[in-house]
Design a protein around this nucleic acid. Sequence first.
DNA 1: TTGAAAGCGCTAACAA
DNA 2: TTGTTAGCGCTTTCAA
Lengths: 338, 338
Amino acid sequence: MRSRGGGARGVRITDVAAAAGVAAMTVSRVINTPERVAAATAARVRAAIAELGYVPNLLAGGLSSRRSRMIAAIVPTIAHPMFAALVDSFTDALREAGYQVMLSISGYAPGREDALVRALLGRRPDGLLLTGTEHSPATRQIVAEAGVPVVEIFDAGTPIDMLVGFDHAEIGAAVAEYFLAQGHRQFAVFAAGDMRALARRRGFAERVARAGCVLVGDPVLPAPSTIIAGREALRALLPALGERTALFCSSDLLAFGAIVEARAHGLGVPERLAVCGFGNFELGAASDPPFTTVTVEAARIGEIAAEMLLARLRPGAGRAPGAGAVRIPFGIRARASS
Amino acid sequence: MRSRGGGARGVRITDVAAAAGVAAMTVSRVINTPERVAAATAARVRAAIAELGYVPNLLAGGLSSRRSRMIAAIVPTIAHPMFAALVDSFTDALREAGYQVMLSISGYAPGREDALVRALLGRRPDGLLLTGTEHSPATRQIVAEAGVPVVEIFDAGTPIDMLVGFDHAEIGAAVAEYFLAQGHRQFAVFAAGDMRALARRRGFAERVARAGCVLVGDPVLPAPSTIIAGREALRALLPALGERTALFCSSDLLAFGAIVEARAHGLGVPERLAVCGFGNFELGAASDPPFTTVTVEAARIGEIAAEMLLARLRPGAGRAPGAGAVRIPFGIRARASS
DNA sequence: TTGAAAGCGCTAACAA
DNA sequence: TTGTTAGCGCTTTCAA
């Protein structure tokens, strides 16, 4: 008879053990390391498990084994198709390995990450995924003290532990390069106000300056990006536009909005306004005209991040050195807009 | 000295207690029920917590208290803006109340839910969110035995426990009604192959039939919806189109694709083809022409679902009867496409 | 208001 | 291959 809790609440491992005529430890082995149990015994135990409808308590298991089989993840949003794809592939890869993801959405407001990290670490996750490489000193310290593998995504820089992403400034520069090779001399850039979009903007602006050209406009728009923000930014840009301008948008949503607004004003795309977006959303191919965009395999980032964590979590892995930072390639998908 | 584990790994509640010169139980009270601790004592304990960087182990707390403060949620996708908004508001509302959401993405393949539910229940969540009201008998049974509050979302029907959503067939009928009131006599419907999109299609088709009109096309497309699927479906529909057709699409993505394709073929919208989508994505307002759509406050569903669970989880709540099912209103947002 | 004892359900470590 | 023992770190319960 138990002294706490109520009546017949919940089947425990000892109930299964009693039903199968074995010790609790044997039931545990059937579940976790079946290769160490005789086939006949395992069959008896499995029958008892099915019979009783036993669902192992992973809270208890995690406490005892010091492995919670949970991974904590913090992303700024899931409304953005890139992050949605990334989260999807990440959770999928981990679920197949028996890990559950605890997802937290930080938004683009700074300072929120600290509280989230604290709350998540209380669940004793076996690993951690963070977005970007910019974190407060407090976050860095608490994460370091937790002693779990950490993978940062979607950015380049100096990682806390492991990293999979790309250099946003480099992407901006590559888009500028692409436009320059087409003979463009006048430029503009629309960017959302988050760290990574701003890095793309900076890379673009620097390459343009280095070519001796000028930006006729480089507004910073609210994060996350919207179509309407792109429309409004283009409307504001109209007076500054010359013969022919090449516009880089930090998101395909902004690019789509810019094109819609350009057409509404009779501004030819690409004759008067060449456009390149970022993200390769489905929208870009269905736009009229379809627009050029930067492609990044977001789902691949999620997969690789999961693999990196799993490699660290395999028994006897340790801090595998060298697996530190993975660069994901990007490309420019040229379409009729440029 | 501890017999298991390694060296100085992790600050425990007893470490804080020793540093503050109190019992472990007092530290626990400072964290969970501070109103039951003298102010001076609490201050001393808080100082020790900060000093040592103590992060309470919620796995241990959950095991002991039988309250994990986790909520498990299963949605088919987060790539869909409606579900993204819903998940966002749901996790937000619960986080504020101290609960963490374990999110699982089931996809649209049937049969996946069973395994997910089992895996999630092993974490002993305090509550459960499921999408839709169609579940396998196995899922229903295991959920019922778990004895946790369950809220089903995004559908109408007979709930396992609680429900917040809307009747998809009713929405389809309302759209048909809207078109009929405009004098339309010829109809078509594009629907993704998931349960809820098919229910909207059915409601639409039945209302059309009741008015003595016919559908010139009602293809079922792969779930989740895409723009390209809408384009292709419209191309296939072209030969069947009469003077003037009213098209209902189960998603704004399909509607956008249909409009793009219609324009590419010189088919006037709304003169030859009237279009209504579903979801009120930002895309619908930026489309040329902007299109009519069904609006549903997805974020509100997430909030209400969270509130329902929290109400059940408050001490001494019990199975509050009457709070069973909440209907979320929907509307038709008329734009130039119809 | 505070503390002591007991145990939540499981698994690591060791023994047979 | 299987079993026994002793906790994992916290909170419930009861007592002071």
